[in-house]
Design a protein around this nucleic acid. Structure first.
Lengths: 180, 180
DNA sequence: CCCTTATTTTGAGCAATTCAAAATAACGGC
DNA sequence: GCCGTTATTTTGAATTGCTCAAAATAAGGG
């Protein structure tokens, strides 16, 4: 077997043989972050983390598809398990926009928000609008001890704006977001 | 049959016989609001609307339970249907806090937000923190045309703060909301 | 009072996620 | 470098929350 292959049992050794141009970008860094989180380094975890690095805001199902291409034996439940371990360990964050499956991202530890395209479902990060944590402090919290605030913006992504302006091709793909 | 009974077929007549102390508070007002929304007035709709008036932030299932007590023949699907009609007609609003079933409320037409207790799940209304629509305007929307913003606060309700301070009775009932 | 059309009932069906037991692999120590 | 302990993954199934569709029924205008 060549140096570019990674089997289930030797995945943890890769960091020891780092030499020449890395076949997989930053593999060691990914391994390290998993280990740093106090988790065992496994092939499925590495694959999920890499997929998440490539495509933030992915659903469990999407990650499953990507991971499968590289690691055919992986089960969907494994992906769910990995994601649960990651979110527990603070390696990943789970977001749950209304009306769609949960999405995951590696960007953790800062308080950023998301904007979701009501037509195609695309998600982008949005830094907290008003400085530090503005929307985090409601005037009247009714006696609640506020721990976190979550903001979701809904709108049209640039691409969908163009498409809608151009073609008269029916209504939004995602509806039910007509909030004012 | 007495004047306090409401059958499926004569529910629409009640507004005509309003006299003396109303057995059901504001029944006529509820009927009127349904009709004003362009919907036919039916017993299930009236019951759901009343239940929603009594207990805002109720799930479909909870409403179903309440409605059933008064209208035993009602099906869960009917409740879903009523709620869909209400939200479409602008009579009700649907909110979907991460990790729980959708909740409904009658308060529509203003942009208010919600605070959810991470321990017991209680929901309270929160007026928009910064005046008109502050959190609604992200600095950088990445080219998106923002149509709406949704804010959810997470924290501990007064009761749960007390309980946690008093008894050392284990961890939160709802977890996974450890966002910072 | 009847007719048309909206609503509800009845009965399935589905997607996303979770649960549980058995098999397997990671990794610290010997 | 091999072993045992413990975490992880596989395998298989169940659950929750919600939607779909056809047939039965009721609201409200004429």
């Amino acid at each position: 077997m060549t140096a570019t292959e990674v089997t289930q049992t030797e995945v943890t050794q890769r960091s020891a043989e780092a030499s020449g141009p890395a076949p997989v970008p930053a593999a060691d860094a990914l391994v390290e972050s998993i280990r740093a989180a106090g988790l065992k380094v496994t092939a499925p975890r590495l694959a999920v983390l890499r997929a998440l690095a490539d495509a933030p805001h992915s659903s469990a199902d999407r990650l499953f598809t990507v991971v499968r291409a590289e690691l055919p034996g992986t089960s969907l439940q494994a992906v769910y398990g990995v994601l649960a371990a990651f979110t527990d360990a603070g390696l990943a964050r789970k977001i749950e926009p209304s009306g769609s499956a949960a999405l995951f991202e590696r960007r953790v530890g800062d308080n950023h928000h998301h904007i979701v395209c009501t037509r195609c479902g695309t998600v982008r990060d949005v830094d907290c609008a008003v400085g530090e944590a503005p929307c985090l402090t409601p005037d009247d919290a009714a006696g609640f001890a506020v721990r976190a605030a979550e903001v979701t913006y809904w709108g049209l992504c640039p691409a969908c704006q163009v498409e809608l302006a151009t073609t008269r091709t029916g209504p939004p793909l995602l509806s039910n977001k007509g909030a004012r």
